[in-house]
């Protein structure tokens, strides 16, 4: 029996090692392509190992390092701010929803759920954000849009429900207010789910380029994703100009490898951040997904 178990474990480990290798492999391809030579790629194809090793794609992207570094900084700042604010606000609404004795709870539930199905569309949202609230061309547009995600609220709520009721009961008897209970007890007990949701929010913001596309015209406020998207798009526009009577020439831009290098630059930090949250991850999702 024991031996059989051991063999089973080994087989499982081999299986998962192969699976993970398969899953991770495309990342390696990306990395390898980003360090390849543009000419070699177009004539001989992608290689598993870059030969010759060529960093000109990174040189192109970083030829203006100020801009990229500023975008890194800005994206980090708004991602963190949005993360903190979003997790706090979502917990604030999730906590009352976790208390079944609250009147009108189902109304609020539906109020949130409805927004998952229906939305106003681009133009009305743009009108609101830029004409009424004047959030365009400010960092707030990154932070304030999409702060409350109903799906995340439901996940947090379900986790809160799993917290033993005695804790709240005894605190109430001691005369603590709901605010105190929420801040001093519920939040500290819910680290796993909060960390998990925080990671989701952070990465969502980190990967955001659409907001800048629509609301940001000041170059100093470009998000990282948008900036890189723009570098790529600029290469295309240069070409279009040329066909339409402009005189710009296409310079020697390594388009294919630049693309890959940009992907690495953007995705890198996200991949580095993830393992730090990992220890909360399974617990955060444990009860979080069960129906409420």
């Amino acid at each position: 029996m024991k031996r059989q178990n051991k063999i089973q474990q080994i087989v499982l480990i081999i299986f998962f090692s192969l699976l993970c290798l398969g899953i991770i492999f495309p990342f390696w391809l990306l990395l390898s392509a980003s360090f390849s030579n543009e000419g070699v790629i177009t004539t001989q194809g992608y290689q598993i190992w870059p030969n010759p090793f060529d960093i000109s794609a990174y040189e192109y992207v970083f030829r203006n390092p100020d801009q990229i570094l500023r975008a890194y900084g800005l994206t980090f700042v708004f991602s963190i701010s949005a993360m903190v604010l979003s997790v706090l606000l979502m917990s604030m609404i999730a906590y009352p929803l976790a208390r079944s004795n609250l009147k009108g709870k189902s109304v609020i539930n539906f109020y949130l759920y409805f927004t998952m199905l229906f939305n106003g569309g681009l133009v009305p949202t743009y009108l609101l954000v830029s004409r009424t609230l004047h959030l365009n061309d400010t960092i707030w547009v990154y932070i304030l849009l999409g702060l409350i995600n109903p799906w995340y609220v439901f996940m947090i709520r379900t986790f809160f429900k799993g917290i033993p009721g005695e804790i709240v009961e005894s605190a109430t008897i001691d005369g603590a207010s709901e605010y105190t209970i929420f801040v001093r007890m519920i939040l500290p007990l819910s680290k796993p789910v909060l960390a998990t949701i925080a990671l989701f929010v952070f990465l969502g913001k980190w990967n955001d380029w659409n907001t800048a596309l629509i609301y940001i015209t000041k170059p100093e406020l470009y998000s990282l994703q948008y900036l890189l998207q723009k570098i790529m798009e600029d290469i295309n526009i240069l070409k279009q100009n040329q066909e339409l009577g402009g005189m710009l020439s296409v310079s020697d831009i390594p388009a294919e490898t630049v693309r890959m290098a940009m992907a690495i630059i953007v995705a890198g930090p996200a991949l580095v951040v993830f393992p730090f949250f990992q220890k909360y991850f399974v617990k955060g999702l444990t009860v979080g997904s069960v129906k409420g």
Partner: peptide
Amino acid sequence: MQYIDSASYQEKMKLKMAAGE
């Protein structure tokens, strides 16, 4: 003169017009 980067000029002008700016 308001310069908008080429990558988003189309998108932004569409919205500016749509919003009646």
